[in-house]
Every structure is written in structure tokens, then in C-alpha cells.
Design a protein around this nucleic acid. Structure first.
Lengths: 337, 337
DNA sequence: ATGAAAGCGCTAACAA
DNA sequence: TTGTTAGCGCTTTCAT
């Protein structure tokens, strides 16, 4: 491969001039710029990335830590990946992916120490997130998709749970439902719960109280099997419940399927409002889901952007973005009869 | 951050000795090894990645080019990501992800030239794949998940379509189905078709001929809407068809849902056998899908491994891995009545 | 078994 | 506007 020295020689300029033409960090006469650019073209020169990193002190690599479902990463995370990926590519950065199950915060820090990565985007933040604590204490540049319990000095992109939770209850209440279930996600026995779960619960509980709606709060693993089981149990215990608000994609699909299976008509006999379904999966059930969701890809995109802004401006100011969902009525909700 | 020189000073050895302790490429006395390791620990030293790459000539970064669905990457690709990711992490490499839609083969080559990546894993290979052609002609180390029409000198990991296609037809034929449909995936009008589609078609056609089964070959985009439309049209045109073999996940879900929607009982009136569904999505429909699938994560894992073997042994021998699917009967297939 | 030293190909400060 | 030069922190060859 051609090096900068080769280009310099061919263009009859000094090596550093080649660098300056490429970086645009100092003014260059039109003449030399042309010479240099044509030499670059002729030799098909690309600056060596490692050399740049070594001299410049930054790798231009961002890491995205992706959570894992039972059998690997869950499909719903793909939209985030896509969003973050687009954000970093726009600015000439690269995106590395690590499985949350396969990597410890310590290892992430090691990668940061060794300069393989300039910053990290983290998702599925828990209310008390040890990863966040560890990485911030080590000053690893960090942006969260979600947030911890303490509204930190950290930058994050998250849903506006207060508004969305209220909107969900409002909607179902207007349809005449007075007894509803909230199905939220728990990933394991010892799971303290991700922040989204807890915040949604708080706002939904509050709204139910105000509107005189009875709320049944349930946990389910986000899998088809667990969702089905939860539905059956709930139905047996509380046949008076006529609507459910669900978090988690698989569990939601299972809810619709379980209703079908047991001859309960959705939405005539049972309304289901999904709060966390990736766009691409909305039409997967029959009938199609009524949703109140945000665009995950957009959240990912913004998380990436915020991180790069911070890295390039060296600014320490944290930014907090809250996104409101949009309610789209499809086939799984109806007036209570 | 501490550098190698700091460690050397503290351990009272030369800098290169530190490197050799770490790389294990020359014998070291137990005494100096101990001194060095404890100095490393004390200083919390991590070798600088860029410096290593620059001096050593390899970035230890592998790129995975992921295809995009309509709205970003499709969920079914997540298992591959997971597999490749695990393979590279095991060997101390890092995995970068690029969207097929957002990156040209030329850009991939640029990254290779600049040393940001040592090799590439490519998936959703077309029968005539220009990306493959371009990258091989530039000698970018490459491993395919899938394969092109010409059985190259390239390494690949792929399904054993001949065997699996035959097994699928055999199974349905034994259940008494004599008129079946094959629904395969087309991503756009001008799409020549991915290799999997074509190879499955060939083997299924052959098996049908041998067993006296009538085959109806159809294309559908892999989306819920397109799958539904395809089902309806097919049902109207050929009500005698009693079973379908499907490729593509979304389209398969839509098939089951459309049957539900129109009061056609699955599997009593209509059998559906899915050939390409990620494990995690198998239970998403009701009833759960009967499948004949391979473990995508395992394919991804092996693709990654093969690439690293090649990079580290510098061997030019290509390896061709063919994986057979496993038939698992669940709720969407039954004897024809 | 260990050390010394020549690069790897850049960035950026300094000099002209 | 351009050139010179001192690193950046390693890998690896050559010496000892």
C-alpha cells in the first residue's frame, strides 16, 4: 500500500503537506492541493488508521454494548444498532459491537485504556446500573440509551415515561376499560429491573389512581413461553381485566397468541396496547398491534451523535433527551363492551 | 495511561522484555516474568492497540457487513452477529458492524487499505455477487455466510440446500400433501435472488418431481404485508394447495396470520413448514412453527473462526462448510385429510 | 535469556 | 503558504 511519503514524493511536496491537505487544518494553495490530490488518486492512497490513532490519540471507534436475550441478542436491539451505526458512520467513525453477556465492564475499560475505543454507548440501563457506575468512575466517555435511578450528570437518550405512561392509561380509560394489567419485563430472578420498567410503572400507577382505574402489575420474562403463561394465569385469577399494557416484544406477541389460543377475541373481549415493539415487528401478530412507541432507531442515532459531539468538542456538558411515543391504533384495542 | 516503558522501568528490564512476556514469543526466566507481571498489575498497564497495529501490521478488527431490511437491519441477522462476535472475541479480535445499505464494496476496501480491518465476513450472498467479486479481486480476506453461483476458491459456511430441500418435500409428501407451494424471498424488483433461494428451489423442484408432488413457486418480499398478500392470492388461484414451504421469517409469520384471518385452520387445513426462522422467533406464531432450520449463530461462529484461522495461519486453503438443518415438528404441519 | 535499536506511518508543534 | 522534526508506543531483528 502507498504511504503518505509516496504521495509526497510524487506530488513533490513535504509529507506533512499531504496530511494538511487531507485534514484541512491549514490553508493550502490551490496549486499544491491539486498536485497532492491527483497524486493520492494515482497511488490510490489511504491514510493508515493505526498510525493516525497512535499520533492523534484517538481510535475513532465507538463501542456499543448490546444486551442478550436467551439465545443471543434480541431482535428488538437491531434498530438501536442501526441507529448508532448510522450516526457514527456519518462522522467517519467505526462501530464495534459487544455482547453484554460476553464482556465485563472491566474489559470495556481495558479496551478504553488500550485505545481500541474512544467511547461507549450503553443500553438497557438498570435502575442501579453497576456498569454505568464503574465506567463513569473511570472516566470512559459514555452515553446511555435509558437512564439510571439517579438522574446523573451523564448524557442520555430516553423515553418520556411520565407522559407516555399517562397517555396509555388515558387511552384505555377512554375506551371504557376500568381494570387493566401492566406486564413488564424481568430478565432474571435477581434482576432489580431496568429503569424503563420502573418508570413506566410509576407513571401508570399514578394515572390509574387519578382516573379510577384498577391496575394489576405483573412481571414476565420477555419470551413467548413466559408471556403465554402470564396471560393464562392472569386470566384465571382476574377474568374482570379487559385490557393489558405490555412492555417487551416477545411477551406481547405471546399475549395476542394466547388469547387466540383460548378463544378470547382480541380486541372485542380483550385489548392489548404495546409500549415497546420495534417498528418492523408491529404487523407480526394478527390482528396487528396497537402501539404507543418511539422510534428506536432514532434514539440510537441520537445517542451516537451526542457521544461524538462530546468527544469532538471535549465539552463536559451533559445532554438529556426525552422522547415521547406516538399512539397508533391498529387491531388490538377497542371499546369495552 | 501507563506505557510499556513505565512497566520496563518499574520491573527493571528492557521495554522489549515486557513485550515478550506479554506475547510469549520467546522464553523468559520465571524470575523476570514475575517481575514484569507484577509491574504490569501495579501500573494497570494495557498495551496500546494502535501502536501494536502500526508496528505489527494488523488491526485485529474484523468487519461484518449486515444486510438491511426495509427499516434497518432485520431481526433475523442478530443471531449471525452474535455468532461472529463470539468467534472473534474468543481470539482477542474486535468486531465492527456495517450496514450493507450504507457502505459500498469500495469503502470496505478503503477500510482494508487503511488497516482499520483485517478481514470481512459477508452474508446474504447473491448468486452473482458483485461485492464478493470486487473484494476478492482486491485480495481482502473474506469469508462468506452463503455462497455465490460459482463454487469459488473462497471459504464459506452455508446450508446444505440439496439435502434440506429434499427432506422438506419428503416430509410433506409423507404427510399426504401432493400440491405444495414454495414461497421464497425477493428483496426488490431487480433482485437476481440470493443464492439460498435459488439452491433451495432447485433441490425442492427435483424432489417434487421424484415424488410426484405438484410445486407452485412464488416470490414474496420478506414482510408481513407482502406475505399476507401472497397467501391470499395463492389461496384464490390454487385452493388445492394444502401445504407451503417458506423462506424468510416475516413472510412466514404473515402466512400463519393470514390463514387465521381467513378462517383457514393451521395445520388441519393447511400445513406450513418454515425453512429459515431464527430460533428465538419460532414460538412467535400460534400455533408454533414446524421448522427445518440450522442454527444461524453457529454458522456465524464458524464463519468468524474460519476467517481468523486464515488470517493467523496465512494459509490460502479455502474451507467449505455445509450445514444440514434439523426438522422439528410443532404446530403448523399435519397429515392431509 | 535479555537488551538495543530500527522502524511502522502518521499528528502537530515549531520554524521559515 | 510550506517544510522540518519530534514523538506516539509498540513489533521484531540483530546483538550479546
Amino acid at each position: 500500500m502507498a504511504t503518505r511519503a509516496d504521495v509526497a514524493k510524487l506530488a513533490k511536496v513535504s509529507p506533512s503537506t499531504v496530511s494538511y491537505v487531507l485534514s484541512g487544518t491549514r490553508s493550502i494553495s490551490e496549486e499544491t492541493r491539486k498536485k497532492v490530490l491527483s497524486a493520492i488518486k494515482e497511488l490510490d492512497y489511504r491514510p493508515n488508521h493505526a498510525a493516525g490513532s497512535l499520533a492523534g490519540g484517538r481510535s475513532k471507534i465507538i463501542a456499543f454494548i448490546v444486551p442478550s436475550g436467551k439465545s443471543g441478542m434480541s431482535p428488538s436491539f437491531v434498530e438501536y444498532i442501526s441507529g448508532v451505526s448510522n450516526a457514527v458512520r456519518e462522522r467517519g467513525y467505526h462501530l464495534t459491537i459487544y455482547n453484554n453477556n460476553e464482556i465485563t465492564p472491566k474489559e470495556i475499560y481495558h479496551f478504553y485504556q488500550s485505545g481500541v475505543l474512544d467511547g461507549v454507548v450503553l443500553m438497557e440501563i438498570e435502575y442501579n446500573d453497576k456498569r454505568v457506575e464503574f465506567l463513569t468512575s473511570r472516566h470512559v466517555p459514555l452515553v446511555l440509551i435509558g437512564r439510571t435511578g439517579k438522574d446523573d450528570k451523564l448524557s442520555f437518550v430516553d423515553r418520556d415515561f411520565e407522559t407516555d405512561g399517562e397517555a396509555a392509561v388515558n387511552y384505555l380509560s377512554k375506551l371504557g376499560h376500568t381494570s387493566i394489567a401492566l406486564i413488564r419485563v424481568r430478565r432474571s430472578e435477581k434482576d432489580t429491573g431496568i429503569s424503563a420498567d420502573i418508570r413506566f410503572f410509576e407513571s401508570i400507577k399514578k394515572a390509574c389512581k387519578q382516573l379510577g382505574v384498577t391496575l394489576w402489575d405483573r412481571y414476565s420474562e420477555n419470551s413467548a413461553a413466559a408471556g403465554r403463561e402470564t396471560f393464562i394465569k392472569l386470566r384465571n385469577e382476574h377474568p374482570e381485566i379487559s385490557a393489558a399494557i405490555t412492555l417487551g416484544d416477545y411477551l406481547t406477541f405471546a399475549f395476542v397468541n394466547a388469547a387466540n389460543e383460548f378463544g378470547i377475541k382480541v380486541p372485542k373481549d380483550y385489548s392489548i396496547l404495546a409500549l415497546a415493539i420495534p417498528d418492523i415487528s408491529i404487523e407480526l401478530t394478527w390482528p396487528a398491534l396497537t402501539t404507543l412507541t418511539v422510534k428506536d432507531e432514532e434514539l440510537g442515532y441520537n445517542a451516537g451523535k451526542i457521544l461524538l459531539d462530546r468527544l469532538e468538542n471535549e465539552s463536559e456538558e451533559s445532554v438529556h433527551q426525552l422522547w415521547r411515543g406516538e399512539l397508533v391504533e391498529r387491531g388490538t384495542t377497542a371499546k369495552k363492551i
